[in-house]
Design a protein around this nucleic acid. Structure first.
Lengths: 128, 128
DNA sequence: TTGCAATCTCTACAATTGTAAAGTAGTCTT
DNA sequence: AAGACTACTTTACAATTGTAGAGATTGCAA
């Protein structure tokens, strides 16, 4: 799987989220979809999308006079590298300490803890 | 606790790590300590540290002709906001899905899963 | 066929980040 | 007191990120 190393900026995340949901789609579509969250003009969105295409985050295909975009990375990949980035920076690359931190500091509810518990059990089961 | 909103850059992390370990310390100390990891000149380090002080990430105190730095945020705070940043961007702000992602996708070893299990249990115990 | 609407392209600009050279100043040694 | 060290200050510069105006193109509608 290519594109492991994608550190997305805030803006890139916003755009990609929209593209994932509407793909393939044109720039004006994305701009409209983001209208309420971000207040970006068409120019802004289009500029970012083209930069993202140049970086290899989006793929483009011209259909007559319309440029259609689709994402070149999956959401999973993006989520993964976002997490890895945090782990690398803040926990020296070690996952377990990060999980520990989450459990200890983010005061999860009892319900959430139980959910986690269940996830772990099911994962363990699936592994053996 | 102030300074909740600290999004650190790569460089800032490196510097802060060093400051946490040596605080209070002078810029040359930090530069030396980072010598092997990063290959930064004194100028580079000093510039960044001053910018960080301007941002409120470091505190300074002048002792005669030497400027001593200490961090203005704790490691916990920094770790926390690094995580929150990832959660916000990649998981829509929801912790549990992120944990799920970790458990499902980061192929943790059986041992790690058991550790997690233990953490959860102990946390649950401490809560009641 | 003329003009409007939609879309695209080009250009710009400020702030932030990463990086550092060069020059200044205070201090210690001889 | 002169030279050498050490640490500090000032200035700079390229790349990236966030933001967008203005003008060019094209296709449809009247």
């Amino acid at each position: 799987m290519a594109r492991e190393k994608c550190e997305l900026t805030e803006c890139e995340w916003a755009i990609l989220q929209t593209v994932w949901d509407n793909q393939p789609c044109a720039a004006p579509t994305v701009q409209e979809a983001l209208q309420n969250q971000k207040n970006w003009t068409y120019s802004t969105v289009k500029t970012m999308m083209d930069r993202m295409a140049a970086k290899g985050l989006l793929k483009t295909k011209k259909i007559r006079n319309l440029i259609m975009y689709r994402s070149a990375i999956t959401k999973q990949q993006a989520q993964n590298s976002e997490i890895m980035r945090a782990v690398k920076r803040a926990f020296n690359g070690a996952l377990t300490p990060m999980m520990q931190f989450l459990i200890d500091n983010k005061n999860l509810s009892k319900k959430q803890l139980s959910e986690l518990d269940a996830m772990i059990k099911s994962k363990k089961g699936a592994m053996s």
